[in-house]
Computed example of a mutant assay.
Amino acid sequence: MLTVHAVNASLKVQLGSAGPAVPSEVLARVEAIWKSEKERRGDSLFNGRLFSIEHSGPERITGWFAEYRWFLAQRRDPSLYQVLKIRPLGVTGLLCCTDGIVLGRRAGHVEMDAGLWELVPSGGVDGSRVDGTGQPDLGAHLLTELEEETGIQAAAVSKPPQAFVMVEDQLNHVTDVGLIVRVNHSAAQVRELFAALTDREYDELEVVPASRISDFLMNRSARLAEVSRAILDSAARQADLLLG
């Protein structure tokens, strides 16, 4: 189940508490799940960190940084949420090039939504990009994902990414902030940069003209990630947002 909220363009993210106190038996369960996953997936599994939400609103999100393995354990054993309370924060870009909106089909090897189409770029907030006060910077995170997932450099962006919607996935406890980002590239240039990437999260990209986005939503409904659909639905109700 998804819950969709409008947010201010100047939405801020701030660090709050250090997170919940976790009993030793829960930590042992987390470690056991992590060990099992490592044995199955090997070096492809990395224990980074992610921003976990405490409180969220249209102007501000507060939270703390958790280990990725906590979230993975929570996904494998949903009962752990009652103690760990991991609510990851992610960013999803409504990427507009000169020919339309960019979407990508998730590669088969990724952890979530493999094989589905979604808005590009997207990713978790891990604290690697901060603003002048040392707080996580959503726009900077999105631009990092943009370069990694499409090959498009931040210099090609016509103005800073602008937040406009928040989508909460209550089943998976994941929240995504949708930000619109515009680049001065054609569809052909976007595809050329993407083709040069050697490590891809997407099998392919597609550029859909803004005037045809409703048809895309109708025709690809069974193959489109729910969060991306919610963000596109929200953008479609704001004609000025898509037209820029």
Score class of each variant (00 low, 15 high):
28 A>N: 03
124 G>Y: 02
116 L>T: 07
52 S>V: 00
33 I>M: 07
45 L>K: 03
132 G>E: 12
133 T>F: 11
116 L>N: 06
132 G>Y: 01
46 F>D: 06
79 S>Q: 09
55 H>V: 00
32 A>C: 01
134 G>N: 12
75 R>N: 13
62 T>M: 08
111 E>A: 11
129 R>C: 06
81 Y>E: 13
43 D>R: 08
128 S>L: 14
50 L>S: 07
72 L>S: 02
111 E>F: 13
111 E>H: 06
93 G>I: 01
79 S>L: 04
103 L>G: 05
41 R>H: 13
65 F>L: 15
130 V>M: 10
122 S>I: 09
46 F>I: 12
40 R>F: 03
117 W>F: 15
91 V>G: 02
89 L>W: 08
85 K>C: 06
68 Y>V: 03
50 L>N: 10
111 E>V: 14
109 H>I: 15
86 I>C: 07
110 V>F: 07
105 R>H: 07
65 F>V: 06
82 Q>W: 00
93 G>D: 06
77 D>A: 14
81 Y>N: 15
42 G>C: 07
57 G>D: 11
133 T>W: 05
103 L>D: 10
105 R>S: 01
61 I>V: 13
94 L>F: 09
120 V>S: 05
102 V>Q: 05
129 R>T: 13
40 R>I: 08
92 T>K: 04
77 D>C: 06
